[in-house]
Design a protein around this nucleic acid. Structure first.
Lengths: 203, 203
DNA sequence: TGACAATGTTACCGATCGGTACGTACGATC
DNA sequence: GATCGTACGTACCGATCGGTAACATTGTCA
């Protein structure tokens, strides 16, 4: 069995100073896809900026669509790391854990050049449900919704599903509006609004 | 002065059975851009589905980008018609007016194939702030935010700006999540969450 | 030194992209 | 009935799209 077209883990995680071609492509694609959008970026631009050539890209990834899906898988890993970071600093306090993420998000989403959530953006770019990148994004959002239900229940909400939905709407609203309004968009009010919603949802 | 490249109004509003070429293009572009995304649709496909030819498109619209901007201007007009529809049925009741829109939105956003807000989607598709379509969208979202402040003040909110931001986050969150989750997404809880938020914001 | 895998080089493919030069059909006017 | 402006179509442009074939070069390990 060849490992071609399935570099799930980087194998050699760039220990040596020189990252392999596949890894350079991955990183470059990640940045370009996120900043400019997947449809907006051609494979030519990716390999040029990565300092490699097209055949190298297609030796490690089956297609541009698959590279896009891979980018989103990386994005998801990074997301969870940030999202769950509060578990260390606030163990046994679901509300504080969640609010730690929300406070950080509010900061990021009110900075110029903010580009929202790469997973959500991919769903907007690919309306058809057959695109590999979209499938990664949809699956992730369902996981996020479940996680929010857990956190809502742990907070003691009367109706955890409703609070989770409300929080998810606020998060997605922040991702979207963060890239429409400049530095003083509605994401500035995210923390206060989330607290209001949580307070109103507790018994 | 020629009216080329500025058919602000259809001039002959399709009174005769035959819509002019520009009008057919406008309508076809509107549907295709909304359903599939602007970047995903080529001008060739637009003119083919509209039953006209490319030169006809470029006689009425300076470029694809300008046609996209025109599409969003139409979209905005349609949006306000829906958004303000509650003013007729519930005069002098800001909360009922807004909730009428929110209830309708919750319905639409929980149907399979929902595509969210065309204006928001355009912002996601064009991150650079120099695209004409994006400028239309950004301007509109600022107007929407202002309108929500008015409505929040009319409802008697302690802090109208904060309630308006919270509502805008919920709306944008619904546009986004409505196209990620199928028929039972978080938009199902929109009405209840919005009511909770409004209640908590009143004195 | 030799073998092998990974990468680079060059050149190319068919398809589609946004956009345009140019010719033609038609209805009104004198 | 010749003339003219409007509206439209035919045919084409150069550029870029995603993707590939064939071969040369490199580094590593035995």
């Amino acid at each position: 069995m060849s490992n071609k077209h399935s570099p799930a883990e980087p194998a050699e995680p760039a220990v040596e100073g020189k990252p392999k071609a596949a890894e350079r492509i991955r990183r470059t694609a990640r940045e370009l896809f996120y900043r400019e959008g997947i449809r907006a970026i051609g494979v030519e631009e990716i390999v040029t900026k990565a300092g490699v050539t097209k055949p190298s890209l297609y030796r490690s990834y089956a297609s541009k669509d698959e590279l896009a899906a891979e980018y989103l898988r990386d994005y998801e890993v990074a997301f969870w790391k940030v999202f769950e970071a509060g578990a260390q600093t606030h163990p046994d306090d679901a509300r504080a854990q969640l609010m730690a993420y929300i406070e950080g998000l509010s900061q990021r989403a009110t900075q110029a050049g903010y580009r929202g959530c790469g997973l959500t953006n991919a769903v907007v770019e690919y309306p058809g449900d057959d695109h590999p990148a979209r499938m990664v994004a949809e699956t992730h959002k369902r996981k996020l919704r479940e996680r929010l239900v857990e956190l809502s229940a742990a907070m003691g909400a009367r109706e955890p599903y409703m609070l989770a939905d409300g929080l998810l709407l606020l998060l997605e609203g922040t991702y979207a509006s963060g890239q429409m309004f400049g530095e003083h968009g509605p994401a500035e009010s995210l923390v206060a609004v989330a607290n209001q919603l949580i307070d109103a949802s507790l018994r």
